[in-house]
Design a protein around this nucleic acid. Sequence first.
DNA 1: AATGAATGAGTGTTCATTCAT
DNA 2: CATGAATGAACACTCATTCAT
Lengths: 208, 208, 208, 208
Amino acid sequence: MTDFNDKQIHILQVAETLFAEHGFDGTSIRTISKEAKINIAMVSYYFGSKEKLLERLIFFRTNDLKLQLKNVSKTEVSPLEKIENFVDLYINKIDANRNLYQILHYEVSSQKRKIDLKAFTEIKKSNLETLKSIIEEGQNQNIFKKNIVIPLLTPTILGTYFHFHSNKSYFKEILNLKTEIDYNNYIKTELSTHIQQTIKSLLLNEGH
Amino acid sequence: MTDFNDKQIHILQVAETLFAEHGFDGTSIRTISKEAKINIAMVSYYFGSKEKLLERLIFFRTNDLKLQLKNVSKTEVSPLEKIENFVDLYINKIDANRNLYQILHYEVSSQKRKIDLKAFTEIKKSNLETLKSIIEEGQNQNIFKKNIVIPLLTPTILGTYFHFHSNKSYFKEILNLKTEIDYNNYIKTELSTHIQQTIKSLLLNEGH
Amino acid sequence: MTDFNDKQIHILQVAETLFAEHGFDGTSIRTISKEAKINIAMVSYYFGSKEKLLERLIFFRTNDLKLQLKNVSKTEVSPLEKIENFVDLYINKIDANRNLYQILHYEVSSQKRKIDLKAFTEIKKSNLETLKSIIEEGQNQNIFKKNIVIPLLTPTILGTYFHFHSNKSYFKEILNLKTEIDYNNYIKTELSTHIQQTIKSLLLNEGH
Amino acid sequence: MTDFNDKQIHILQVAETLFAEHGFDGTSIRTISKEAKINIAMVSYYFGSKEKLLERLIFFRTNDLKLQLKNVSKTEVSPLEKIENFVDLYINKIDANRNLYQILHYEVSSQKRKIDLKAFTEIKKSNLETLKSIIEEGQNQNIFKKNIVIPLLTPTILGTYFHFHSNKSYFKEILNLKTEIDYNNYIKTELSTHIQQTIKSLLLNEGH
DNA sequence: AATGAATGAGTGTTCATTCAT
DNA sequence: CATGAATGAACACTCATTCAT
């Protein structure tokens, strides 16, 4: 099965939100069906089981994520600009898929579910390759430092974002972000800039 | 209640491991009591409820975490060295309390549980203050940059660590870390160094 | 309704096998429809309900069974030969309708289903009459014993067969019947002979 | 677990009756708990699962059945009397355990449940050995016929009984047995005698 | 004439918790 | 002080059946 009908997509979206909010175990089929205003048997009917619903959800979103960051490395701009574009796109993408990442984050770390994350891993590896090629280009042009552990850049980019988001209420408090809009704006401006600067500081040779 | 007897501590430790592995919802009182080799009614008897067990666990560990990073700022070394010590201590602390942080990370982001995190927030604020005072000292000495959003440094430090740890199996694969020892070593050496460099790159004025 | 179209007969046959194998309750409409490669709604559509499907199945097969044993008593042979023919025909008939009898056996003894077994009872009564007339003929000719409880002969004929068949695997083991063919052969030879001998021993006057 | 407490025995007894009446699949845990006036969770609590309840029930009754028929062959009476005692005891035993046999009969023939029937098979084999030794004794004394397929005697004994019992309402009708007492009396007198005669007719040499 | 979508009722089982002892 | 027995509520899931098309 590759396509989903409207009702299935609706269920997936409701489930995504609830899973992100309360976790997979913390969300019952009853809650999903109540929230989605569907019959309780529909989940099993459409997806077979609760676990398979999760699988299909990941598939559904991963398909969306497959639009790669690859193209960034192919544009005719400086390596630095490529990095900026790459980080920007990356943050935008995970920000747009907050909920899925939230779910995945948890389900991956607790390996209880034997979810097929191959597709997901592939995307991560592909992104890593893209990043690597950009950085090597910059290193060849002597713009970037030589001693960089590239695989640790992703944890810094994503980790910073997620840690901020995971501690939403804490940061809303200490940064005085009163509304949801304020919070989202802060991510798109200050936090993004911070991550950009972090990565660039790490990469750039002094004097540039 | 402030003190715990041996049996209670034993239960807390078992629960901590299980919660970290399978999540709060994914861990049943039955599993805890079986693992801890205690009667199933003991949890309710000692802690009142499963939820309160979690609260007490957080309290138990937070107490432990209260050994502040404060002292770092009071030593007679350069601001840069203070930062190094601070980051080192911070990483060591969260590494030693992986399981609790894993639990908290999840339970905080899903605000289902209305856990009293005041004590925990206090620690974070206190650490932030310490960090702030160190950085300001360095800025006054013109060693550190001026335009630094200090509250975003913690997300970078902790986020990098946690994102790495959350994707343990992925990083074990791509970094070719075969054993648990290799993995733990990598955290203590490469990952720590990476985080150190990241923070220092962000802080240090060019030319220093 | 008396006649069945091809699709209905197909469903009945599939259902018969499954009911015999897994019982009525143990067989779901889903399983039937999957096995018969028909739409799941077809059963209700054609037969009204699962219960009615069973009724129609019994009707379908009972119709088949109506080819009476009556004629046996009308042939021009000795009462003993008539008995032999009667038992032979009876065993052959139930052997050919194993599955139905298996189902009936269970569904009759558990009176949960209020199935209309009138037609079936009629057949049994008719067979009993036939048997009775043969035996009385033999008794009049002084070939058969006088003190025979005729209604208890059927339990011995059918009971012996069914008990053997119900404990198929046990008897395959102790009689060293390795294949299905061996087993079926044993029924047609040894078991049939045993039943024949049993009945004849019961009926025949000593000295004949 | 070998022993059962009063409540467990009560549940087993209620379940036995219901399983015999409506089959295993046709009996829900809810029905059992309602009938036994216990909480619905008790079945799982005491037996682990519905299937295990059945297993324990079989174990419970089989233990009872283990009181072997062996001793019959050791008494100081004629082989014919031994046979009479054997058949009598056998019928009494299955009559006293009607319900269990009813359940087993069905669950064995439909091999859906992979019940451990080893103990049960052992009893059957032991009984067969006993029967064999009695018959051989009679054959040596020239009282019994030589050409007897001993393993087929059990199907005749048990099969006759069970077929009668399975068609209870039919036989109550044609034999004009109005009450339950009449029915049970008939089994203990006429039916038992019939089975006795059947076996003896099969065994005894003419002229004796 | 036939079916895919949908449903409410029911299934066995597990849960955290309570309570008498 | 500690626990085994017991429970009602909730769980994911399957059931036979209905109905619009």
